[in-house]
Write a protein that binds this DNA or RNA. Structure first.
Lengths: 233, 233
DNA sequence: CATAATAAGCGTATCATGAACATTTATTAT
DNA sequence: ATAATAAATGTTCATGATACGCTTATTATG
C-alpha cells in the first residue's frame, strides 16, 4: 500500500501553506486591527497581517493558536477560520496558499510589551494602510464575516473587558457596523437576551453619573445559542 | 532577492493541497448529494466526495471548476468555498489539506452518462453512508452553510430547472430545512420578492389541476441582492 | 354525463418584533 | 445652589411572521 500511495501522490505538486490572522480589537470607541511590519520578501517592510507557515506536523488551527499566543501572549484567544486564499499569483515568491483566520481580542488583555517586541501595531480600522499580498482583501472579507456573525451571536462580547458598561457595548457595535444605534432600542434588545449580569459597580470614566458595569452570563448565553437566536440590531 | 526567498522558504514543509466538492442536487422532492467510489488509497472503495489535488499552477477555485466540469459536464456550476480542512491526521496517507467547496446543480442539467462513467452516484441526503476521510464532516458543515445562505439569498433557485412550479420550490426548501412549510405563507413570501415570472404553461405531473410554471427573474433578483434583503422562511 | 378526488391557489386575523422618538435621573464641577 | 453631562427608561406605530379554512381547476370514475 505504501508503494501505491507514493505512486499516486508523487506526480502532484506540493505547496506552501500559511495561515494569517485578522486580529480585531476594540479600544477607546474604535475598532482596531493588529498588523506588523513584514520582515521577509516578498513585500518586506509593508504592513501585513500576522501569519506563519503551517508546519508539516501541525494542524492549521494549531498554527493559528501558536501565532496568536506568540504575538499577544494570550493562549485562549477567540478565533475562527475565515477561508482559504488560493490564487496562484497571490504570493509572488512561491506558490503558497493561505488560510485566513479572524480573531477577536480584549484589548486590555494583551501583552503590550510582547506585541511591541514583534513590531506589531494596533491600526485604527478606518486608517488601515495597504497591506502585503492579498491581506487587504482578507481584512475586508473578515469584517464582512464579523458583521454577519455579530448578528447571530453576541460575538462582540469577546472584544470587551470582563466588566463593561452597556454604552461601551453599544459603542463596540457602532464601530463594527459603522453607524449610530438608538440607545433605547439597543438596551431593550440586549436586555431581552438575558445574557448580562448587572453588577453593583459603576464605571465613571465617561460620565458624572456613571454607568453600571456588567458581566457576561456564559451559561445563559450557551442556552441561547442552542435555541438559535437572533441578535439583529 | 531570489536567493533570500529560497533561504526563507526552504526550511518549511510543503504539503499536498486538494479541493473536495460537496455537490447538492434536488430531485423528486429529495435533497441529494453526488458522491463516487474512491479509487485510490487511503480509503479506496469507500464513497467519497468528488475532489482532486490542486495543481501547482492552478488557482484553488479553478481546480474546483475543473472537477465540476469533468464530472457533471456543466461548466458554470454555482459553487462557493466552504472552508479549509487542515488537521494533520485527516488523511492518513500524506499530509494533505483540503479546501471544501459546496456546489448546487440543477439535477436535470447534468450529463448522466458522464456522471455514471466516473462511477458517481446521487445519494439521498438522509441515507448518506460513511464517507472517506473527513468528508462526512464536510458535508454536515456544507448543509449548515446551505441553510444559512438560503435564508439570505434565494440560493435554492439554483437547484431547480429553468422552469419550475411554486410547489416544487417549496418542496426544495422543505428538503433543505427538513421541515414542512405552510404553502400560503410560502407563496406570500416568494411573491413578495418579485423574482419570479409566471408563465402561461402548467405542469400537470403532480396534480390534475396543474401548477403554473415560473421562471427566475435574474434582473430583479440582482436588484434585490444589492438592497440587502432577507429570505427567512 | 355527473360526481368524486386531488392538489393548486388565495385572503384575513393575530401576534411578535423592529423603528422612531423625549424625558427624567444621578452625579460632579462650578 | 445650579449647571452640565451622560445614563437610564417606556410608548406608539409599522411591518412582517404565523396560523388557519375555503374555493377552484382539472382528471378519473361509475
Amino acid at each position: 500500500m505504501a508503494k501505491q500511495l507514493i505512486d499516486y501522490y508523487s506526480h502532484i505538486g506540493k505547496m506552501y501553506v500559511a495561515t494569517d490572522c485578522i486580529i480585531f480589537g476594540f479600544d477607546s470607541g474604535e475598532l482596531k486591527l493588529l498588523v506588523f511590519k513584514r520582515r521577509v520578501e516578498p513585500n518586506k517592510g509593508l504592513w501585513s497581517l500576522i501569519g506563519s507557515f503551517v508546519e508539516i506536523d501541525e494542524d492549521v488551527d494549531k498554527a493559528a493558536s501558536r501565532i496568536l499566543k506568540e504575538i499577544t501572549g494570550i493562549s485562549n484567544v477567540f478565533f475562527e477560520q475565515l477561508m482559504a486564499y488560493g490564487k496562484v499569483e497571490r504570493d509572488p515568491g512561491y506558490r503558497c496558499i493561505s488560510i485566513a483566520q479572524y480573531a477577536l481580542i480584549r484589548i486590555d488583555d494583551y501583552d503590550e510589551k510582547l506585541v511591541e517586541s514583534h513590531g506589531a501595531f494596533w491600526y485604527k480600522f478606518e486608517d488601515l494602510p495597504t497591506l502585503a499580498l492579498d491581506h487587504n482583501l482578507m481584512v475586508l472579507d473578515g469584517l464582512k464575516r464579523l458583521r454577519r456573525r455579530a448578528k447571530y451571536q453576541p460575538i462582540g462580547f469577546e472584544l470587551l473587558p470582563e466588566k463593561f458598561t452597556i454604552p461601551q457595548l453599544q459603542a463596540l457595535y457602532e464601530a463594527i457596523y459603522q453607524r449610530k444605534l438608538d440607545s433605547r432600542n439597543f438596551r431593550k434588545k440586549v436586555n431581552s437576551l438575558n445574557v448580562l449580569i448587572k453588577l453593583d459597580e459603576k464605571d465613571k470614566t465617561s460620565s458624572k453619573r456613571g454607568a453600571y458595569l456588567h458581566k457576561f452570563n456564559h451559561e445563559n448565553y450557551n442556552k441561547l445559542l442552542l435555541s438559535g437566536f437572533n441578535f439583529e440590531i
